[in-house]
Design a protein around this nucleic acid. Sequence first.
DNA 1: ACCACAACCTGGCCGC
DNA 2: TGCGGCCAGGTTGTGG
Length: 270
Amino acid sequence: MPELPEVETIARHLRPVLVDRSVVSVEVLWPRSIAKPTPDRFGRELTGARFDGVGRRGKYLILALADGRALLVHLRMTGRLLFYPEGGQLTSHTRVVIGLDGGASLHFVDQRKFGRLWLTHEPDSVLGRLGPEPLDPDFTPDELARRLLSRRTPIKAVLLDQRCVAGIGNIYADESLFLAGIDPRRPAWTLSHEEVAALHGAIRRVLSQAIGLRGSTLRDYRLPTDEQGDFQTKFHVFRRVGEPCPRCGRPIERVRIAQRSTHYCPSCQC
DNA sequence: ACCACAACCTGGCCGC
DNA sequence: TGCGGCCAGGTTGTGG
């Protein structure tokens, strides 16, 4: 799914077009896309609200409403948020249509139906368990070390755990571990202080660069304009099994860690 | 605390 | 063409 860079890109693109617009209609085409409240109340209680700001926490998009509530969106694997300045195309995967004043609309499209929307007064009831934002200035190597030290599981599995650090998914976990030169199977607590510092730098570098290129489009991820991201052309290891490692030339390999495909260079990552 | 596995879903791709 | 099996950017819950 969209990971931190993709969700950040969506937030940045939605902000200027959504802020100060009001909801004039809500159509829920797939009720299970609504996590809270009931689909009925969701439509009723969102209608008339005005968007006040657009933010992100981890992989959650936060559409703040002027009355203090928030519309939270998690895109999971295949969710998209498409903004149409006027009209809008319904597809077989359109799950929720939010009509806006001035004829614009926001469409939640989700082939696999895993994505969810929450309308809530208490965003923390949904976001409360997330770990720190990796790009936040107070996310330090020491903070990362504290969170890794206690974990006996493979470092790759810990990076995917949203309670440890928020926003990292399969792509950016593999790319960060490659840049830091760390074997994804290493138990987290065995990393040296230097390795944690290298990983901290790698995470920030990869995420920032990916945001700069508007995220990675493999298949489903799109900007609100339906455009694609470009970071997939910069992958060092992700989905490059058998291709030469950009650093040493030996073939990239794949293993399964925590039930997820993991791509790495066996000679550069140890 | 940790792990495996299933569930939630659809669809693309591969081999037969 | 069709069918079974495997794969996919994520998260949550269960049982061991």
